[in-house]
């Protein structure tokens, strides 16, 4: 009965996606198999040379290792902060809850460049944090935070923690608030209620939030570019340099494709794991 109608309705979007998304991605995949030299530019050859270059060079291993380490640490910290914060927000007075929602979600709508500029001002050797510590004689020499992985993680947590809170919040909203009362009436204290009743019910949210945060952190660009510069490179800033400075597009494309495949592989594996773990308990 329905027939071609849904396809007609989706046709404009579908055509756009085929032309503007699928084609460019295929072209990029093809590009990553081309070769490059500094005089002739991109050569339409077809080989695995770029992948061999990347996978045989410890420099690139270091970059990918750093990229995923930063993403992992960011995810863990975001989960550790975001989960309790989402729970506290659920229990707040409605007025404070709406204030907190603005505080949490507002930054999401402000450009990452602006937020990262704020962190650069805070973290610099003459930045706000170091100046404050020096004024109270807690340090003699500034703590180096700009151009370090730690600084990038701190700013990324700031960017990512709203996504974690949103995911956990959504899971907690599905929870029957009476389960907490039930546990309390059976003799559980606040910490036990959180650990035994709230946390397991928030777990699907934590896991899906972790997935979002991890994949966004692994491919983040603005924050590592501003706070890490040329000194602390990650996969996305390396791709940027290959494309816009070195102009070795095929090599850049190969790095990008490796990043894409790695992120997708991790996402699929994670989903599998989650589905296995929670089959039967949550749909």
């Amino acid at each position: 009965m329905i027939g071609t109608r849904p396809w007609l309705l989706s046709a404009p979007a579908l055509v756009l996606f085929l032309v503007m998304l699928v084609t460019p991605l295929i072209m990029t995949a093809v590009l990553s198999f081309n070769s490059f030299d500094f005089y002739g530019g991109i050569k339409p050859t077809f080989g695995l040379g770029n992948y061999a270059d990347v996978l045989s060079d410890s420099y690139f291993y270091e970059i990918f290792g750093r990229t995923f380490m930063i993403a992992l640490v960011t995810t863990v910290i975001a989960a550790l902060i975001g989960t309790p914060q989402a729970y506290f927000m659920l229990r707040m007075h409605p007025f404070w809850r709406s204030v907190m929602i603005l505080v949490v979600l507002g930054p999401l709508l402000i450009s990452v460049v602006v937020r990262t500029l704020g962190w650069a001002i805070l973290l610099g050797n003459n930045g706000v944090i170091n100046e404050a510590l020096r004024r109270f004689d807690m340090i003699e020499r500034p703590i180096k935070m700009m151009y370090t992985s730690g600084g990038i993680v701190l700013a990324l947590v700031h960017v990512m923690v709203p996504f974690m809170i949103l995911a956990v919040w959504a899971a907690l909203q599905r929870q029957d608030p009476a389960t907490e009362k039930a546990a309390e009436s059976l003799g559980a204290g606040p910490f036990t209620v959180f650990r035994r009743i709230v946390l397991p019910q928030a777990m699907p949210g934590i896991l899906s939030g972790s997935l979002i945060v991890f994949s966004l952190s692994a491919s983040a660009f603005a924050t590592p570019a501003i706070l890490g510069g040329r000194r602390v490179k990650v996969a996305s800033t390396t791709v940027y340099d290959e494309f816009l400075n070195t102009l070795n597009w095929p090599l850049g494309a190969a790095i990008a494709i490796i990043l894409l495949v790695a992120v997708l592989a991790i996402m699929v594996a994670w989903n599998r794991l989650v589905e296995k773990r929670f089959a039967g308990v949550f749909q």
Partner: peptide, 24 residues
């Protein structure tokens, strides 16, 4: 499949989208 396609720009790292658009 259609829905997955339309939501896929969320899962592809933005830097990959950037170079793909540049190339295209």
């Amino acid at each position: 499949a259609l829905q997955a396609l339309f939501l896929s720009p969320l899962t592809v790292p933005t830097v990959v989208l950037g170079i793909a658009f540049l190339r295209f």
